[in-house]
């Protein structure tokens, strides 16, 4: 086809303008994207509910979210896809949730450590505040356990306290419960140790198993298979009472140390979500908690149910943050690592 240059130019411009115009008008309409809009109320839920997870697939938080999502589809009558948005221990996902409509169509499974421990280690403007969100329900508690290789010289917590000077202890990273628990414990027990941070629970576990470090703290679910196989010796747990799955292992408090560190998880919705929506969600999740499948899931993964009211979640986590802040100051612990 032969076009005169001027006509071709005019055509091009027209097409470009149309395209831009279309896009702009569509954008101006605000778009109507993926999991639909609309508020709560009588016809809630209006379609699939996104459940955000701030961790990688396959991890504990992710598995809990999937178990919940699987069970919640029946009482709610809609699908609940799990969307992984890993980063900064969940801060990225929290940020994304905050930007969603408070209509109950977006939820998140959030970790207590993000709220109560990470703020001790990061700059002020990165802190995630639970008050910005509506808590729907608490889910469960995942205890931490201090472990050592079966072949090591330590058999009990007292051994570590007595002979532990110069030990190397593995942590799952800066700003984690693993680090906090050990820092507090060793400060109170006056044991001189060197923290060796790893990237998460799995490498820490490997290091302890291989005796690369003397002791380490990981989540109980990660350590149980090794403990049951006799490869690891559990030394202490860090809840206020003994963990139901390790009845023979003392808690740190029992041994006289004021160290209460556990990982909790809760479901939150964007701030401003209407109360009746929150209530519908709570009762739906309540049904999931009561189901056999979910209870078996908890047992298989060594989680302790902690299905509390929203107010209690907020109070517990807020109190933890304050307590930790006070203790970290008292013992002069620098959560940002040595040097």
């Amino acid at each position: 086809m032969i076009h005169t240059p001027r006509r071709r130019y005019a055509r091009r411009t027209a097409a470009a303008v149309t395209a831009v115009g279309l896009s702009l008008s569509a954008a101006a309409c605000g778009g109507n994207l993926s999991s639909g809009g609309g508020g709560g109320g009588e016809d809630y839920p209006r379609g699939p509910i996104d459940l955000l997870v701030g961790q990688d697939p396959g991890g504990s938080t992710d598995l809990i979210a999937r178990a919940l999502a699987e069970g919640a589809q029946e009482p709610l009558g809609v699908a609940m896809p799990v969307i992984n948005t890993p980063g900064a221990n969940g801060a990225l996902a929290a940020g994304e949730l905050a930007g969603q409509e408070p209509d109950g169509q977006s939820l998140m499974v959030i970790n207590a450590s993000l709220i109560a421990i990470t703020p001790l280690a990061v700059a002020g403007d990165e802190v995630v505040d639970l008050a910005d969100f509506e808590v729907v329900t608490g889910i469960s508690r995942d205890d931490y356990v201090l472990v050592t290789a079966a072949s090591s010289d330590f058999d009990t917590l007292q051994d570590v306290v007595d002979d532990g000077d110069g030990i190397k202890y593995g942590t799952t990273g800066v700003g984690t419960g693993s680090q906090l628990a050990q820092e507090l414990l060793f400060a109170q027990a006056e044991v001189e140790g060197t923290p060796v941070p790893f990237d998460g629970g799995s490498p820490t576990l490997v290091a302890v198993l291989g005796s690369q470090v003397d002791v380490g703290v990981v989540q109980i679910g990660e350590a149980m298979p090794q403990i049951e196989a006799g490869e690891l010796t559990p030394l202490a747990t860090f809840a206020d009472e003994r963990n139901q799955y390790l009845p023979d292992v003392p808690s740190a408090t029992e041994e006289g140390y004021d160290v209460l560190v556990s990982q909790y998880r809760a479901v939150v919705a964007p701030g401003g979500t209407p109360q009746d929506t929150v209530e519908s969600l709570r009762s739906a999740f309540g049904e999931v908690f009561a189901s056999e499948a979910y209870q078996a899931f908890n047992e298989d993964n060594f989680y302790t149910p902690h299905e509390t009211e929203p107010a209690q979640v907020a109070q517990e986590w807020g109190a933890s943050l304050e307590d930790y802040r006070a203790m970290v100051e008292e013992y002069g612990i620098d959560m940002r690592g040595e040097g």
Partner: peptide, 16 residues
């Protein structure tokens, strides 16, 4: 790690 999770969900905890 994801397969680990899958095994856990299936009730087959991977371990020694």
């Amino acid at each position: 790690a994801v397969i680990f999770g899958a095994l856990l969900i299936q009730g087959v905890p991977p371990g020694p």
